[in-house]
Amino acid sequence: MEILKVEELKMHFPVYGGIFYRQIARVFAVDGVSFSIEAGKTLGLVGESGCGKSTIGRALLRLYEPTAGRISFEGKDITHLSGSSLRELRSDMQMIFQDPFESLNPRHTVGSILEEPFQIHRWGTPLERRQEVLRLLDRVGMPADSVHKYPHEFSGGQRQRIGIARAIALKPKLIICDEAVSALDVSIQSQILNLLVELQQEMGMAYLFIAHDLSVIRHVSDQIAVMYLGRIVEIAERDSLYKNPLHPYTQALIASIPVPDPRRRKTFTPLQGEVPSPLNPPPFCHFVERCAYAQAVCSQQTPQLSSIDGSDPSHRVACHFAGRLSHK
C-alpha cells in the first residue's frame, strides 16, 4: 500500500536583487519530481549538495509551500492543508534532522523535549506522559536519568538518539530522515543505523531517507531515487540500481565512492566538471555538460523518467541513451 505519493512536485524560490530589490530570478530547487513510498518501506533519496533532496523533505512536511504539484498521504491530498488538519498530519509524519545540536532546544530538559509532542497532541495524563517518555528513552538506549539533563550534556550520537525518540513518540507512519547520520563518527553511525532499522521492523514505519552517502543509502533503503539539479534522474529497487545503474550520473556517483580496500584503487577520475548553478541550469538534460555520452538530442529534448523496454518496469531512468551506454 502506498503511504505517500508525490506527483510533479515543484519548489521554486524567488531570488531578489538589484536597486529596487525586485525578483530577478528563480531557483528551481525541485523541478517536477514524482515518487511514492510503500507503507513500512524505505525510499532513499541521494544526490550531491544543492540537488534539492532536503527541499523535498521539507516540502513533504509542509515546512515549505510547494509551488506546484500534489502530495497525498494515505490517499488524502495534503498539498494545501492548514491549521488543525496540518497539525494532525504531523503526528503521522515526523522528521529527524542532521544536526542534533540545532534541532533540540538547549533550554529544555530532555524530559520536556520528549513530552512536548504529547502535550501538543493532547495525549494522556501527566503521569502517563512521563511514563511514556521513560519508555521512549529506554527504547532508544538512553538511561532514565537523562530526563533531567539538558541537550548539551550529551554527545552527538546520544543527541541523535533523543531526536529519534522525539520522532517516534507519536508512532508516526512516515519518518523523514534528513542526513540523520552524516554528522556522526563511524562507530556511532553504525549504532544509529542499526537502531533505525530495528525501529522500522518493530513499528512498521516508512522512511524517506535523505543522504549523500551512497553506502549508507544502500544499507537502509528498499528503493532508491538519484537526484541531480532538482530532478530525479533514476529510480529503482536497491539491488537493481547498484548492479545495473543506467544513468551516466548514477554510474559516476557509484564509481566515485572510495572503497575501503587498497587493492581496488581507482585508476581514473570518474567525472569531470562541477554541478552547474541551479539559477541557470542547462535547459533539457541538466547533466549534459558533464556527460561523456552527450549528443545533440540531449540539448534539444528533456529526457523523461521511464523504464527501458525489456527490463524491470520499476527501474526508471531519465536519459535518452539509457540501456545503450557501454560501460566505460
Binding site: 554527545s155 550520537g157 563511524v186 562507530s187 556511532i188 553511525q189 553504525s190 549504532q191 543505523l193 542499526n194 532499522v197 551512497l214 553506502s215 549508507v216 544502500r218 544499507h219 537502509v220 533503503s221 536497491r238 539491488d239 547498484y242 557509484i254 565512492i257 572503497v259 575501503p260 580496500d261
Partner: peptide
C-alpha cells in the same frame, strides 16, 4: 571495530552492522 562498522557496497544491505559499544 571501525572497519566492520562501515556500511560497504560489497556487503549485503540491511544486515545488522557491527558496532563498537559505548563512547
Amino acid at each position: 571495530g571501525l572497519m566492520n562498522a562501515i556500511p560497504r557496497l560489497d556487503k549485503p544491505a540491511k544486515q545488522v552492522l557491527s558496532t563498537i559499544p559505548g563512547m
